[in-house]
Amino acid sequence: FVATPSSLDFKGIKVGTTAQKTITIKNTGEAALKISKIVSNKAAFTVSPATLEVAAGASAKVTISFKPTTKGAQSATISFTDNAGNHTVAVKGKGTVPKFAATPSSLDFASVKVGKTAQKTITIKNTGEGALRISKIVSNKAVFTVSPATLEVAAGASAKVTVSFKPTAAGAQSATISFTDNAGNHTVAVKGKGDKPNAIENVNASQVSIYPNPSSGHFFVDVPNAGNLQVMSLSGKLVETKKLQEGKNEVNINKPGVYLLKIAGKDFSVVKKIIVK
């Protein structure tokens, strides 16, 4: 009777789950090895098969299963009752329990403009002893999204989950981020407020008027809000700058050519082309 390996170590196995390893029994003798009983003296360790016969020079495998029901180190003896003198193999393992810790425990995005996206992160730390396996991370409200959707965190390690908030309407909004994991399932509360965009943020090129265009060098710039004007040549050279008041502004360019007018105010910026003859 020769057992390989002569002992087994399952190391850390999550409580309630099962791991398996095999022992190879080789008959190095000249007659059949008859094992009438294979048993474990601890319920957390089980064996299969319960009996075995191995021809001379042959080998066979015995499967040992470890399913810890409690946390901590555990050991057992696998006993073989056989016609070659009876034998034992020592086995051990450790029942582990992952532990979920989220920092921060809740998120507040405060105010975010409607249609804009803000992001914050949650750090997930596994303060337990076994791997923390998160099979699903979801939000129950569409305006809050998460990434990644699954995660595995080794014992003692940390990983980040990104939460995005993109409000589609003004007002307070909240959601629950749910984690389906092997440490008991957990949630993180998130909230934020959708703010209406300021009118100035809706300024676009069609709301800025330049006339006449083409011009003789004397023209007007109409803007819905106060801002600044930069007159640039097509080569990028700055020709003139001017502060603009809300409404109609008079501008003069003496040299004929094609110019770019960069018009910017708080939260808006447009570029227009003008031809001076």
Rank of each mutant, 00 (worst) to 15 (best):
A3G: 10
T4R: 10
T4D: 08
P5S: 08
P5R: 03
L8M: 13
L8H: 07
D9Q: 14
I13H: 07
K14M: 07
G16Q: 14
T17R: 12
T22V: 08
I23L: 14
T24W: 10
T24H: 06
T24F: 15
K26L: 10
T28D: 13
T28C: 06
A31D: 11
A32Y: 07
K37S: 09
I38M: 04
I38Q: 00
A43R: 03
A44T: 11
A44W: 01
F45W: 02
P49Q: 08
T51D: 12
T51R: 05
T51G: 09
T51V: 06
E53C: 06
E53F: 01
A55Q: 14
A56T: 02
A58T: 11
S59W: 14
K61N: 14
V62F: 03
K67N: 10
P68R: 02
T70V: 12
G72E: 10
G72A: 07
A73E: 14
T77A: 12
T81N: 07
D82E: 05
T88I: 12
V89M: 04
T96V: 15
S111G: 11
K113C: 09
T117I: 09
T117E: 10
T121Q: 13
T123Y: 08
G128E: 01
E129P: 03
E129R: 07
E129N: 07
L132G: 01
I134D: 00
N140L: 08
N140D: 13
T145E: 05
P148E: 07
G156I: 13
A157M: 12
A157T: 13
S158W: 03
A159M: 07
K160C: 12
V163E: 00
V163L: 02
F165I: 06
P167D: 05
A170T: 14
G171F: 13
A172W: 06
A172R: 11
S174L: 11
A175Q: 03
T176A: 10
T176V: 11
S178L: 11
T180R: 11
D181H: 05
N182W: 03
A183D: 06
N185S: 15
V188S: 01
A189G: 09
K196W: 12
A199F: 10
E201S: 11
N202A: 14
N202I: 10
V203P: 00
S206D: 14
N213C: 11
S215H: 05
S215K: 08
S215Y: 03
H218G: 09
H218E: 14
F219M: 04
F220C: 01
F220H: 09
V223G: 03
N225Y: 09
N228G: 06
K237G: 13
V239D: 05
E240M: 13
T241I: 12
Q245D: 15
Q245P: 02
G247Y: 03
N249F: 08
E250L: 12
V251I: 14
I253M: 04
I253G: 04
Y259C: 05
I263C: 08
F268T: 00
S269F: 04
V270K: 01
V271A: 06
K273R: 13
I274T: 04
